[in-house]
Design a protein around this nucleic acid. Structure first.
Lengths: 186, 186
DNA sequence: TTCGAGATATATCAAGTCGATATATTATCG
DNA sequence: CGATAATATATCGACTTGATATATCTCGAA
């Protein structure tokens, strides 16, 4: 029930609407999690039904149907419980590395293009993270998430630049047959 | 159609069954992609129907129903086309960073535990990648994916160890109110 | 030798999720 | 004044996950 936990977390920072939560996922959380409206709205409905959220309607004023959610005491407890129970893990889904894995199948121009795309992406992420790193007083935990992002993107950017020429030069060499069931060791 | 591309890619390395492909996703591809049987088998069926794969049955011999797939000429072309069309991107899904973001809500012991879990995970990944880095002659592209993994995990492990004591010491300080719509800049 | 654990192999299902889309109001700016 | 972007909720089909069922084969320990 990951999206539910994400919503509880978002609402522990401040009260908000489904739209606000989506915005948060696209900014502060964007490095390590995301969720679409199609999962956020059902999750909020469910959480409210479970008594973990309060919902007050704000009609008339500005927007119609503005549903402002806030955590209940139970909701805050549930958040802590879920965070505690959740195993610490991570998963990368990288189309870029897939592309590099099969780089020998691509024309040189295409490969050059992909590398340029990824370089631009890393630069953007890095400059965003650097811009937020030292302007506010983040908690130690939040500062950690930002610093990890900075170090990781810096490493990736450095490697990409170091290896670019070599990749473009070598990339048509056909890789060896993939060994029996996996490479090398097992 | 990501899983289809993944399957075509896997079968470009060697012919294999759905099971073989799953194994490959759990070993060589595991750092940057994954897929479950529930998406692999339907994808193979579809690809075969589209004429991108051949399937020869291997009955009797050892296992029943062993369906050995191989790329057709069209399949190989489709793989190159899809790789070329695919934008170079990546996405991280990290429960660990979520946990760090909300570290101030957790008891110290729990936080210490999560850090230890993640440290062990990073160590495992790192030692696996190092073991395969220099034993075979990988293509430049494959070597790049391995080297990126090594550098990234090394950076993450270093940061985790550097910051652990400070995180455990500071973590009960309550973070500042999240600024209007996003932190700092925008 | 036989017994069980684990690997090999295919397949399906409910539940959850994404990406796109529809709808409608409000804010902004030339 | 009119166009474009932002705010806001909601839904839908298609896809994916994680679990589970089924069955055979392999190999080492009792």
């Amino acid at each position: 029930m990951s999206v539910k936990t994400l919503c509880l977390g978002a609402l522990s920072l401040r009260d908000g609407t489904g739209y606000d939560i989506k915005k948060l996922f696209e900014s502060a959380f964007s490095h390590f999690h995301s969720a679409s409206y199609g999962s956020i709205y059902p999750a909020l409905k469910q959480l409210q039904a479970d008594g973990l959220l309060d919902c007050r309607l704000e009609p008339g004023a500005k927007h119609p149907d503005r549903k402002l959610f806030s955590l209940t005491g139970e909701g805050r407890k549930a958040l802590v419980d879920e965070l505690t129970a959740m195993p610490a893990g991570e998963q990368l889904r990288s189309d870029f590395l897939l592309l590099m894995f099969f780089a020998h199948l691509l024309p040189t121009e295409v490969l050059r293009d992909k590398l340029a795309q990824m370089e631009a992406y890393y630069e953007d992420e890095l400059s965003y993270l650097k811009s937020i790193a030292d302007c506010a007083e983040h908690s130690a935990g939040i500062a950690f998430t930002i610093e990890q992002g900075i170090q990781v993107y810096t490493a990736k950017l450095g490697l990409l630049r170091d290896r670019r020429e070599q990749l473009l030069k070598d990339h048509r060499e056909i890789p060896k047959e993939w060994s029996e069931n996996s490479p090398c060791t097992d």
